[in-house]
Amino acid sequence: MSAGTVTTSRSSRRALARQVGQVRKQNKAAYLLLAPSIIAMVVLLGYPLYRLVDISFQEYTLRELFARTTVYNGIDDYRKLFANGSTFPTIALRTVIVVVAMVIGTMVIGTLVALMLERLKPFMRSVVSIGLLTSWATPSVSATQIWKWMFDSEAGILTWVLSLVGVDLKGDHSILLSGPAILAVVVVVVIWGAIPFVTLTLYAGLTQVPKELYEAAELDGAGFWLKFRGVTLPMLRPIFLLLTTMSVIWDFRTFNQVWVFNHGGPNQSSLLLGSYSYYASFVEHDFGYGAAIAIVMVLGMFAITFYYIRQMVRGGEAS
């Protein structure tokens, strides 16, 4: 009897040891697979990120950059963000408004176009797909140049079109002279470039939704809106979550469009947080302050998207 318990406990201990060994072995294999990505990210992002944090606590201007000296100034750079007369709060608020407009515009139009794609005949569907691929493939630097050219105050085609409905963007009314006007066009450029990815991903998701669900909903007398809310939305929830979160992150970082348009001008009025950090560093040569802006921005974005990212990580866990 007692011998029996000993053997069982010994075998169970051996089983446990084997399990632990397996966990350790799994760990080792996993870390081996992850090693290249971790090394690359630590060297080229982790270390520079550490330096960025370090710089944000320094007095770091051109002088320090070239002399390679280090002068710590505590949280002065951060204090400057909220000091009297600082443009940071204005730009942060502006960024939030612009990002909300971009994300809502992208998701709503992207969803509508995806629903449309699903109902089109194959020929029209490939016509629209080719159109989408064309705008998707257009580099953001080119795209911004094109839109800027279409809104040119002398000979822009959209300037002409708008003049027909009484909107004057010529001469003194050039959009380049107004921050809000530039940002309105930047929103359009970003949405124009972001719709293809969102649409094609959603369309791919739509093709995976079982047709029986729609048929069942139709038998229950559901119309377009009810079918969308009752079937499409819940089925595509993970995709919507991913796309919205990624859009928020990508749109917060909008840089090329703002910079190519007018370098954040006139008078900083078209700067968004992403370009403000660059502006502080490379126009005002205050790298410490630029770093502080970037860090506050990352923390803010992390706070906004944390809940959704946790859900996405959990979703990945369940699968």
Partner: peptide
């Protein structure tokens, strides 16, 4: 988290 870092801010480091 890495995807949230504005890369433009990372130019100097």
């Amino acid at each position: 988290g890495i995807q949230m870092i504005p890369l433009e801010a990372m130019v100097i480091p």
